[in-house]
Nucleic acid binder design. Structure first.
Length: 157
DNA sequence: GCCAACGTTGGC
DNA sequence: GCCAACGTTGGC
C-alpha cells in the first residue's frame, strides 16, 4: 500500500464536495509527473490526503482512498471540455490518465501548511520543498504518520 | 495582486 | 539538443 497527497483548489473541488459525491474521477491533471503516478503506480486501496491549495486556509482537508487504477481521462477527448481538451491525444494513444478517488474522512478543520512545516519529519517531503508544484505526489510512510499524529494531536480526526 | 519557481513550447 | 519566451502554479 502506498500513500499519496493530491492537491485541489477548493473552489473547484473540496473535501466537502467529495463528501457529498463519495467517489470522483480525478480528472484534469495535465502534468506528466503527476500523470505517471496515477497511470503507473496507484493501486486500489492506497490512501491519499486531499490538500486544499490556493485558498485562505491552505493545508490538508481530509483523507481519501484510491478507488481505481489509472485509466484515460475522458475529458481529453472532448472538445467541450475546454482547457482539458487535448487535440493531440487519441483514444488509441491517450496522453492523460486519472484514477477514481473515494471519500474516507474530512478533518474537522484544515491542517494548515504552516503547521505541517513545523514537522521535522516533513523536511524531505516534496510538499514542503520550495518551488515544488507537483499536484499528485507520493508520501513516505513516515510523512503520513507524522501528519496523522499531528492531526490527532489537534483533535481533527 | 504579486511574483518566484517551475514546466512547456518552439525556433534555431 | 539548447535555450529564450511564455504560461501556470501556488504561497504570500
Amino acid at each position: 500500500m502506498q500513500y499519496w497527497l493530491m492537491k485541489s483548489e477548493p473552489t473547484s473541488f473540496s473535501i466537502h464536495d467529495l463528501q457529498q459525491v463519495r467517489c470522483e474521477p480525478w480528472d484534469g491533471v495535465r502534468n506528466y509527473q503527476a500523470r505517471n503516478f496515477m497511470r503507473d503506480a496507484m493501486q486500489v486501496g492506497d490512501k491519499a490526503f486531499l490538500y486544499h491549495s490556493n485558498t485562505k486556509k491552505i493545508g490538508i482537508a481530509g483523507i481519501m482512498s484510491i478507488a481505481s487504477t489509472g485509466y484515460p481521462d475522458p475529458t481529453q477527448f472532448n472538445p467541450e471540455c475546454g482547457y482539458y481538451y487535448d487535440p493531440k491525444s487519441t483514444e488509441d494513444n491517450p496522453r492523460w490518465y486519472l484514477v477514481d478517488v473515494q471519500f474516507e474522512q474530512a478533518f474537522s478543520d484544515i491542517l494548515l501548511l504552516s503547521e505541517l512545516k513545523t514537522l521535522p519529519q516533513l523536511d524531505d517531503c516534496l510538499l514542503t520543498q520550495k518551488g515544488s508544484r507537483l499536484s499528485v505526489m507520493p508520501l513516505q510512510v513516515k510523512h503520513w504518520q507524522a501528519i496523522m499524529q499531528l492531526a490527532e494531536q489537534k483533535g481533527l480526526l
